[in-house]
Nucleic acid binder design. Structure first.
Lengths: 200, 200
DNA sequence: CCGATACTGGACATCATGTCTAGTATCTTA
DNA sequence: TAAGATACTAGACATGATGTCCAGTATCGG
């Protein structure tokens, strides 16, 4: 009767349920996934599901929270470093997302764009924090800039994970940061391509 | 039996259903709204609903499509004008959104961020079209820039509609375009606030 | 005024949710 | 390895939302 969930069965069940949710979310979008679907995919009894989580949202929330812990740790480690004129959070985020592509795509809602509140909230705090450090300004201006960057970041991340862009994490980050700091003008001016690839 | 829906009863019912959907979406988010809720709010029989629309999504889609027609018309009218180094679509969009605040907020999913595919698609095409006109470049670079701007725009729009920012449509648009074209650096550098251009 | 059309409430089948129970499998640890 | 604790399981159940259908009633347009 130890404290945590050391029991193999518990760990196994939760792992299977999480994986199933990620797969199904990526395939059909979060809204379309039912608890029965998840259990079928995970090969777990439906009643078992409810002994672990009260509902579908809770499963997702827990899964996301666990992974945000990883991100938090990474961000925390770099927090003391001076920001050399760019965002600190985005690089690690792109890199980590690349490593766990499926899960991150699921976290953004799969093909559909169903970004959970926790994710948006976390990005929002990162951006706001970093922007506030860069320059002191009016609340409205900071708000606008924050929302601007959050929206742009999530959309670029989603696009990059969903499409087969062949871009390395570092390359997207560079592109993202250029767009964010220099704006359209600078990026559009440059004539050279990053990497050739047709579109759909 | 003329072509359109000249019958008063039909027009009335659809109008009521649309309005009810907008209200409820703004209040509780789109996902939480049920068909029964809509009918109750609109004071319309539930069976009547299904004689007009096959489901909830269809009602939203129709409503959105109708309003996108308005936007399309506005955009089309300005399409021939030369773009003086900025986006053409955003100004009218902010202005029109201001005029029909509730409906637009509902179109973005209410408090929650549940942006329907049609809206995202329309913005995407606007942005891509305008960006492509500004400079010729690789597909990836254009893709990235497009998604960047789309995400930023939708998020800023949502924030502006949701919060009581006191910013006039013109002011948000200016702020948005500054961020988009000059980037963070330029906007954050300026010490003065935008405040004072409120509109009520 | 009258025929056509739209609205209505209610019945119905279907499906997903969440709870509960009694029985079975598996873990831990003594 | 045996025993007690704990997790899993299938299935029944109540609830609520969906979408279909129908017969009766109100309202429209000509």
């Amino acid at each position: 009767m130890a404290a945590g969930s050391i029991d193999r069965r518990v760990a196994r069940t939760r792992r299977l349920l999480q994986a199933a949710l990620f797969e199904l979310t990526t395939e059909n979008g979060y809204a379309a996934v039912t608890v029965a679907d998840i259990c079928a995919r995970a090969d777990v009894g439906r009643s078992t599901f409810y002994t672990h989580y009260p509902d579908k949202d809770s499963l997702r929330k827990t899964a996301i929270e666990e992974h945000l812990d990883v991100m938090r740790a990474m961000a925390g480690a770099r927090d003391s470093q001076p920001s050399a004129g760019g965002f600190v959070f985005s690089g690690p985020a792109f890199a980590h997302a690349d490593a766990t592509r499926t899960m991150h795509l699921a976290m953004l809602g799969g093909k559909k764009h169903e970004i959970p509140e926790e994710v948006r909230g976390w990005i929002d705090r990162q951006v706001r924090h970093e922007l506030a450090d860069m320059a002191r300004q009016g609340a409205i201006r900071l708000d606008a800039a924050t929302h601007f960057v959050v929206g742009a970041f999530l959309e670029v991340m989603h696009w990059w994970l969903d499409e087969e862009t062949q871009l390395s994490p570092a390359a997207v980050d560079q592109l993202f940061q250029s767009l964010a700091f220099e704006g359209m003008s600078a990026v559009l001016a440059k004539p050279h391509d990053v990497h050739g690839k047709g579109h759909d």
